[in-house]
Simulated assay, not measured.
Amino acid sequence: MSDAAILDTPAFTCGLDATLKVISGKWKPLILYFLLRGPTRYGELKRAVRDVSDKVLIQQLKELEADGVLTRNDYREVPPRVDYTLTEMGQSLARALEPLCAWGTENMAEMQALFAARDGWGRGKRG
C-alpha cells in the first residue's frame, strides 16, 4: 500500500470503531447472521431479512462484498443463479455477533415491553 493510500485511510479510534464501520447499516448484522448458515441465494436473504427493500439489500450486499466480508457467486446460468457466501473474515465477524444475538433472545420480552412503553410516551396528552 502506498503512503498516500495510508494517509487517505480513516484512522480508527478502537477495534469497536473498525467493526462498526463494517456492520453499520440497519440490515448488515442480520445479513451476516443469515449468511453464517452457508451459501444463500438472494431470494432467501430477502425473505429472511424482512422489511428490507431490494435497493437497500443490494446496496448493503455490495458494501459487505467491497469490505471483504462476503463473496458474490454468479453461476452465469439461465435463469440467473447468484448466491452469497461469507469469507473467512466474514465468518469470524458473524460469530462475534452471536453473543449479541443471545443477549437479544434472553432480553426480548423485556425489550418489547420497554419499547412499547417508550413508543407510548409520544401518544400522551400534550399540555
Score class of each variant (00 low, 15 high):
residue 58 I to S: 11
residue 47 R to L: 14
residue 18 A to T: 00
residue 49 V to T: 12
residue 12 F to H: 02
residue 44 E to F: 06
residue 75 Y to G: 00
residue 65 E to K: 14
residue 13 T to S: 03
residue 58 I to M: 07
residue 56 V to C: 02
residue 55 K to D: 06
residue 71 T to N: 11
residue 40 T to S: 15
residue 50 R to M: 09
residue 26 K to D: 10
residue 78 V to K: 14
residue 68 G to R: 07
residue 49 V to H: 10
residue 22 V to Y: 01
residue 52 V to T: 15
residue 44 E to T: 15
residue 12 F to C: 02
residue 33 Y to S: 03
residue 19 T to H: 02
residue 34 F to R: 11
residue 47 R to Q: 15
residue 74 D to G: 06
residue 67 D to M: 03
residue 26 K to R: 13
residue 20 L to K: 01
residue 49 V to E: 13
residue 73 N to V: 15
residue 14 C to Y: 01
residue 67 D to T: 00
residue 51 D to H: 12
residue 82 V to L: 07
residue 48 A to V: 07
residue 55 K to C: 03
residue 66 A to V: 06
residue 68 G to S: 06
residue 36 L to V: 03
residue 71 T to S: 11
residue 71 T to H: 05
residue 40 T to I: 03
residue 18 A to W: 02
residue 25 G to R: 04
residue 68 G to L: 06
residue 59 Q to T: 10
residue 15 G to K: 04
residue 49 V to C: 14
residue 43 G to N: 15
residue 66 A to P: 03
residue 67 D to P: 01
residue 35 L to Y: 07
residue 37 R to F: 13
residue 56 V to R: 02
residue 64 L to S: 08
residue 42 Y to S: 05
residue 29 P to G: 07
residue 39 P to G: 14
residue 59 Q to L: 10
residue 59 Q to C: 02
residue 37 R to N: 14
residue 16 L to I: 03
residue 54 D to I: 03
residue 63 E to M: 10
residue 45 L to K: 03
residue 31 I to C: 10
residue 82 V to S: 03
residue 51 D to M: 11
residue 45 L to F: 08
residue 46 K to L: 11
residue 80 P to Q: 10
residue 41 R to E: 13
residue 84 Y to Q: 09
residue 9 T to P: 04
residue 51 D to R: 13
residue 25 G to P: 08
residue 59 Q to S: 14
residue 32 L to N: 03
residue 11 A to D: 04
residue 33 Y to Q: 11
residue 32 L to D: 01
residue 10 P to R: 05
residue 82 V to F: 05
residue 75 Y to N: 09
residue 42 Y to P: 04
residue 48 A to T: 08
residue 40 T to R: 09
residue 39 P to M: 12
residue 36 L to N: 10
residue 24 S to E: 02
residue 44 E to Y: 07
residue 68 G to V: 07
residue 62 K to T: 13
residue 36 L to T: 02
residue 63 E to V: 10
residue 51 D to K: 12
residue 67 D to Q: 11
residue 46 K to A: 07
residue 56 V to W: 00
residue 56 V to Y: 01
residue 69 V to P: 00
residue 31 I to W: 11
residue 65 E to Q: 14
residue 46 K to E: 13
residue 57 L to K: 02
residue 27 W to E: 06
residue 78 V to P: 04
residue 38 G to T: 08
residue 73 N to Y: 11
residue 50 R to A: 14
residue 21 K to L: 02
residue 13 T to D: 00
residue 32 L to G: 06
residue 68 G to P: 00
residue 69 V to M: 15
residue 17 D to Q: 00
residue 25 G to Y: 04
residue 52 V to F: 05
residue 34 F to H: 15
residue 72 R to I: 15
residue 68 G to D: 04
residue 52 V to K: 01
residue 19 T to W: 00
residue 53 S to Q: 08
residue 64 L to G: 04
residue 82 V to G: 05
residue 82 V to Y: 03
residue 56 V to D: 00
residue 82 V to R: 08
residue 19 T to Y: 01
residue 65 E to D: 13
residue 70 L to Y: 02
residue 64 L to C: 09
residue 14 C to P: 00
residue 39 P to C: 12
residue 77 E to D: 04
residue 26 K to C: 08
residue 75 Y to I: 11
residue 67 D to H: 07
residue 62 K to I: 08
residue 51 D to F: 12
residue 78 V to H: 11
residue 22 V to Q: 01
residue 71 T to R: 12
residue 21 K to G: 00
residue 35 L to S: 06
residue 34 F to K: 09
residue 81 R to H: 10
residue 41 R to I: 05
residue 81 R to M: 09
residue 53 S to C: 01
residue 47 R to C: 09
